[in-house]
Amino acid sequence: MDDARIDHVVTSGTFSLDGGTWEVDNNVWLVGDDREVVIIDAAHDADEILAAVDDRRVVAIICTHAHDDHINAAEDLAKVTDALVMLHPADEELWRHVYPDDDFEPLHDGQEIEVAGVLLQILHTPGHSPGGVCVYAPQLNAVFSGDTLFEGGPGATGRSFSDFPTIIDSITERLLDLPPETIVHTGHGDSTTIGAEGPHLAEWIERGH
């Protein structure tokens, strides 16, 4: 635990859903030490992610959800590292859009994954997608929010498989109760804190109606 750290890689590619395609930059987060690591979100560029992994053992590849920009390097990474790709099963239909023949290891709410002496807690936070999760690391004062919570508000809910009231419930019930100093490492863009985002809940709800 004393040597545990968070590494950050930004990869670029596209996100496609509902017949549209957009250019996106994704945050890939690596939690571990000099010996082992967990990859959170396998986005776009397996080689770039592997360069950040270096020669460490990959304990798991955790997908916060199954939009293609968060999983499109997952199978390439799994083949090289022999690590399991982990995803909440409520996102299986989205997963099959990218990997019709490949399976994943199911994640469940409350599950804990240990890496470098750090416990990563899985919080099921649907709304952006049915199987969206956040990964909470209390020992590192961090939560990896995928596309559930960003600096400035909740993730998008205007496309298939998403729902605005559901994401608001997820943020309210699962994230805003975390300590206010908790750093929110997002799926895209800058990090924020729970304390910075919580006071704006009413504004988000008003904006979403």
Rank of each mutant, 00 (worst) to 15 (best):
D54E: 15
C63I: 09
F144E: 02
H209I: 11
L120H: 01
T186R: 00
P106L: 02
E36H: 11
T148R: 01
I113C: 03
A196W: 01
S160L: 10
F15T: 08
E75C: 12
T125A: 11
V59S: 03
I71T: 03
D177V: 15
G13R: 05
I167M: 04
L149M: 08
V31N: 00
I49P: 01
E105W: 08
T64Q: 05
D68Y: 04
S160I: 08
A142E: 00
G32R: 00
L123I: 12
D41Q: 14
E203N: 13
I39R: 02
W22F: 14
D102G: 04
G32V: 02
P179C: 11
I71D: 00
H67W: 12
T166M: 12
P154W: 14
L119Q: 14
F150A: 06
G110W: 12
V59Q: 04
A73C: 08
L107H: 11
E48M: 13
D7M: 05
L30W: 04
D68E: 12
D82C: 09
D33K: 06
G13N: 07
D55Y: 10
A137P: 13
G155R: 01
D109W: 00
P106K: 06
V133D: 04
E173N: 15
D7R: 06
D82M: 10
L77N: 08
V31D: 00
E203I: 10
G152H: 06
I39Q: 05
E173G: 12
P154Q: 11
L175Y: 00
I61T: 03
P165C: 04
D82S: 14
S191A: 15
A196S: 14
T125G: 04
T193V: 04
A73M: 06
G208N: 12
P89T: 14
T172A: 13
T11H: 07
A46G: 03
D69Q: 11
L178D: 01
A43E: 00
G19M: 09
H188A: 08
H128K: 06
E173C: 11
L119T: 13
E114S: 15
R96D: 07
E151K: 13
G187Y: 05
R159A: 13
W29Q: 02
E112I: 13
L201W: 02
L120M: 14
H44Y: 09
A142G: 05
A202W: 11
A90K: 08
G117I: 07
V85S: 09
A137E: 09
V143H: 03
I71R: 02
V184C: 01
F150R: 05
D33V: 08
A46N: 00
G132D: 14
F150I: 08
L87A: 08
L201F: 07
I167N: 08
E203T: 14
I183M: 05
W204H: 09
D103T: 12
N141C: 07
D25P: 01
T172R: 14
T148F: 00
D18G: 13
T14H: 12
A66W: 03
L17T: 12
D177H: 14
L119I: 10
E105P: 05
V115K: 04
P180I: 05
